[in-house]
């Protein structure tokens, strides 16, 4: 039962985090960030998570390159 005040706080927190993320140039959009925050809140090791994200990005880049070369 999240009250309206709680909702507000969560939104503000997300805003702040998004701002930090932008400052640090992480390249995360609001949706990914929210996923990441939830994962972190569940006690996921941030180191592992960051390496996963980086590798996923690389993989996606590679896919795109291969696709474009194919296409």
């Amino acid at each position: 039962m999240a009250s309206a005040a709680n909702m507000n706080a969560v939104r503000e927190t997300m805003d702040v985090l998004l701002e930090i993320s932008r400052l640090l140039n992480t390249g995360l959009d609001i949706e990914s960030l929210s996923l990441c925050v939830r994962l972190c809140e569940q006690g996921i090791n941030p180191e592992a998570l960051s390496s996963v994200i980086k590798e996923l990005r690389k993989a996606s880049d590679a896919m795109k390159v291969s696709e474009s070369s194919k296409g």
Partner: peptide, 26 residues
């Protein structure tokens, strides 16, 4: 921003998120 984050007690693992952001920093 960090100060603001600290005043809101929503997150339990602030360091974790900050760390994640830092590692993703480019």
């Amino acid at each position: 921003l960090h100060r603001k984050l600290q005043t809101q007690g929503v997150l339990k693992h602030r360091w974790s998120i900050l760390y994640l952001l830092l590692s993703l920093c480019e």
